[in-house]
Each structure stands twice: as structure tokens, then as C-alpha cells.
């Protein structure tokens, strides 16, 4: 087991180096001069060149890369072009909000997706199975921004039971428990929109796993022993069908972060995605690259964790 974990860790070292090189490459390819917004227009060309030298912008690329990595490791992503804000501070301000949203969507997708998949598999080829399978395909196929707009239109504008955007009712100035329920109230719609695609893929995956397991010899043995159908389904089949679902844990992280870009911008949720969209509009490449690097690292950690979890629950794949 320890050997497996060590092997997985060693394998992710080149990946994380690759991630940083790719991020750095994209940043270097981006147009525009990082100095352009800081300097006084009356400065002479010689002085400009001198300050470029002093900032290391004329160093060879690999030297720049190592300097950049040195700063990034200490959590310093530099400053924005406009307003001279510290990028890491901007991101840290937004990160918790994105985590609240993605984590809720993550929990929602498994709490809803697994039971739906199991029910569809148990009632295979029934009308219920067909409708659930159809609905989960719709969930995969609907563009998330369109679903988001529909949900806002229906629940916020027509019915008026949920707020159409934002994270809290600032004017009300809630504190304590009221503050908590207020955020929850704002959270429900975006969390549903963000999790929909994931609910659909989790339930489809659970259904096909469950059907595969039901064909296994040990299920036939259990039936031959005369065990009750419920015991066979929920004790023998369900537990084994759940094992591969662990792999989706890792896969759903990049999916949710991608989705957060769209969901946050539709719902005005003050998270990293919304920051990213604003950064695109303002051409703030530093912010985009920092977001890329941070999410890529989070995704890598997520995959690592789910691989290790998989090995913990299923001893067959350790070697």
C-alpha cells in the first residue's frame, strides 16, 4: 500500500512541473508589456531598458521561470496591471466562496446521483429506469449557462422564491444564524445548476456499474443460497458497485471548477470564476495564470486522493 502511494506521488512530480511550465508558457505568450501600465510616459528609452534589466525581464527564459517558480512557491503571484493589487490577496478573498459553491455541488452530485443510479439499475428496463436515464442524458446535454438562465427565470423572476444572484443580502446586514440561512438561500440555485451535469454522470456511471456487478458469479451464488433480493442488492451488489464511483471523485473536480466559471458569472457569485471572467475582460493575464496554476494543482491533488482512495477500497488494483 505504502509502495503504491509512493509510486503515485513520484508519478505526479513530472506532472506538476509540466503544469507550471505550461502556465508559465501561456503567460509569456500573452501580449502586452508588463511595464506598460507602471511607467511614466516621459521616461527615456534607456531608463526603461534599465528598469527592465532590474526587473529581470531581459533574463533568459529559464532564469525567469525559476525566479517565477521561487515566488509562486511562497504564494506570491505578482500584481495586477491596473490598480497594483496583490494577485494572491485577490484570489484568497475569493477562494473560500468558490469552495463553498463547488463543495456543495460536489456533495449534491453524489447524494443525488448514486441513489438515482442504483434505483435505475434495480428497476432495469422499467418505465422509471427509462425516464431516469432520459433525464440524466438531458442533464449531460443541456448547456449549463442555458440551464442557469432557465432556473433564474423560473425560480427567481417568475416565482420569486430564490434570489437571482449574489451571495448574501448585504442591505439586511444579517448576523449569526440568520446570516447562515441567508447564504444558504443564495446558494441553492447555483449549487443545483453547477451539480446538474455531475449528478447526471454520477448516476449513469453508478447504474452501469451496478448492472455489471449484478452479472457477477457471486451474485448468482448469493441467489442460489436463497438470500433475500434486498440483501443481495443492497449488501452484495451495492457495496461493490460503489467502488469505481470513487474514481469519479477526482474526475468531478476539474468539471466543477470549469462549471464554476459559468455558474458564478451567471449568478454573480463572488468567487474565483467570476474573478476569472473579469480578468478576461480586463486582459489581466497574471490573474488568469494564477487561477490556472491553483486549480490545476487542486485538480492534481484531487486525482491523487481519489487514486489512493481507490486503492484503499479495492485491493485488486494496488499493483
Amino acid at each position: 500500500m505504502l509502495k503504491y502511494i509512493a509510486k503515485r506521488l513520484v508519478m505526479s512530480i513530472p506532472v506538476i512541473i509540466g503544469i507550471t511550465i505550461l502556465s508559465f508558457g501561456i503567460m509569456k505568450l500573452s501580449p502586452g508589456d508588463p511595464l506598460a501600465n507602471f511607467v511614466n510616459p516621459s521616461i527615456s528609452m534607456e531608463d526603461l531598458e534599465a528598469s527592465r534589466d532590474a526587473l529581470g525581464l531581459n533574463d533568459p527564459l529559464h532564469v525567469q521561470y525559476f525566479k517565477w517558480i521561487g515566488e509562486v512557491v511562497r504564494g506570491n503571484f505578482g500584481y495586477t496591471y491596473s490598480g497594483n493589487h496583490q494577485i494572491s490577496a485577490l484570489i484568497m478573498e475569493r477562494l473560500p466562496n468558490t469552495i463553498i459553491l463547488t463543495l456543495s455541488a460536489f456533495v449534491l452530485s453524489f447524494v443525488v446521483g448514486i441513489p438515482v443510479g442504483v434505483i435505475a439499475a434495480v428497476k432495469k428496463n422499467s418505465r422509471l429506469d427509462y425516464s431516469l436515464t432520459f433525464l440524466s442524458l438531458v442533464g449531460v446535454a443541456i448547456p449549463s449557462f442555458f440551464f442557469g438562465l432557465l432556473v433564474i427565470y423560473l425560480f427567481a423572476l417568475v416565482l420569486g422564491i430564490f434570489p437571482s444572484g449574489g451571495m448574501e443580502n448585504i442591505r439586511a446586514g444579517y448576523t449569526g444564524f440568520a446570516y447562515f440561512t441567508d447564504i444558504l438561500h443564495h446558494l441553492i440555485l447555483p449549487a443545483i445548476v453547477l451539480s446538474l451535469g455531475n449528478i447526471a454522470s454520477v448516476s449513469r456511471f453508478t447504474r452501469s456499474n451496478m448492472l455489471d456487478v449484478l452479472k457477477e458469479d457471486y451474485i448468482r451464488t448469493a441467489r442460489a443460497k436463497g438470500l433475500r433480493n434486498k440483501v443481495i442488492l443492497y449488501k452484495h451488489a451495492f457495496r461493490n458497485a460503489l467502488i469505481p464511483v470513487v474514481t469519479i471523485f477526482g474526475l468531478s473536480i476539474p468539471f466543477l471548477f470549469s462549471g464554476a466559471y459559468i455558474t458564478e458569472s451567471i449568478f454573480n457569485w463572488p468567487g474565483m470564476g467570476q474573478l476569472g471572467i473579469k480578468a478576461i475582460q480586463d486582459r489581466e493575464y497574471g490573474i488568469i495564470m494564477a487561477l490556472n496554476l491553483i486549480t490545476a494543482t487542486l485538480v492534481l491533488l484531487g486525482n491523487l486522493t481519489s487514486d489512493i482512495l481507490y486503492a484503499v477500497v479495492d485491493p485488486r488494483i494496488r499493483n
Partner: peptide, 14 residues
């Protein structure tokens, strides 16, 4: 592994 670590939309946007 490197490419899938970046959420697709992030890479596309970059």
C-alpha cells in the same frame, strides 16, 4: 495527466 489537470474551460479561455 498535465493537460487534464487544467479544467478544459480554463485552458480554452487562456
Amino acid at each position: 495527466d498535465i493537460v487534464i489537470s487544467f479544467p478544459v474551460l480554463f485552458l480554452l479561455i487562456s
